[in-house]
Amino acid sequence: MMGQSEKLQKIAAEALEQGQVTMVLGWCKKDFWWQAPVAFITDPASAARLVWDPFTVYNPVKYLLDNHHCHEKIGVFVKGCDSRAVNRLLQDRRLEREKVVLFGVPCDGKTDAAKIKAAFPGRKISAVSRVDEKLLVDTDSGTETLPAAGYLLDKCQTCRHPNPVVYDVLAWEKVEPRPGVDDARFVRVAAVEQKELEERYAYWLRQFDRCLRCFACRNVCAACNCRTCIFDQAEPRWIGKASDLADTLNYQIIRAFHVAGRCFECGECERVCPADIPLQELNRKLIKDINEYFGEYEAGLDPNDKPPLGTYRGEDPAGFDES
């Protein structure tokens, strides 16, 4: 039986050979076992570099913004979350559907390398592979088996769309969403909501005090796809450049507002944050409020729907005193 990596390699090689696309974006292995960075494959022979392993978490879709001009058509491997990034770019008119061939990859969740490392303190790990719901960890003192579900990235534990929502080809059969993802979706938001007002401010101050304003959360986000970000502009100067917590709060509030009704919950912002700031607690708060006030809406499912802040109903309720 062909392995999953081989399936991706075959899809990519065929698409390149047949001239259907001139570049394929997928994942490859580099220096470390815990990384599977995005690969840019332009010839069929290199398709063998492609992998599907527990760490292929990176979203290749945003790279299309830099590359789609130079290619007639690009093939992209998309997990559920990545496919919603495609819809995000389509809705934002940053991408045309006919410029891409989408190779859908149903995804049963990616592994959190930190959790694996924590499970084997002091041991050197050389490789991690996955067989169904088991993780096989090769260490300097033999291969260990772990249950995959216990070592998922946090973001994958609340994933409602493990299957691509838009694709041209599907690499293998669709998978079932993990049980309980709907219940887990707003648990962290509710926990913050339950705190007292002052406690909440102190909580967020603690979180954002760590923010380096490295903008990784913005740069990784497919919803943050402006050509020139408002925070990079000099005139008008929307936020100060100095390391002032008030400017950080300004950035974080406006960043969250700019993805309100547009965030498709991939959780990459939180994953890439070097300061471990729980950004999903902010993004999902906005999603929860939008659902409650203006009706259920899930971004990144249909590029032709109307994002909730770009439309209205006369009978909308208000979150303030309308008297």
Partner: peptide, 29 residues
């Protein structure tokens, strides 16, 4: 103002969630 209502419903809830007193940011017709 229909867009105002949506935008600031969202912003106001977010500010309160971040610990800003509701009285500090108000929207009125």
């Amino acid at each position: 103002n229909f867009f105002t209502r949506r935008r600031f419903t969202v912003l106001k809830q977010m500010l309160e969630y971040m610990g800003i007193e509701p009285e500090r940011f108000q929207v009125r017709w």
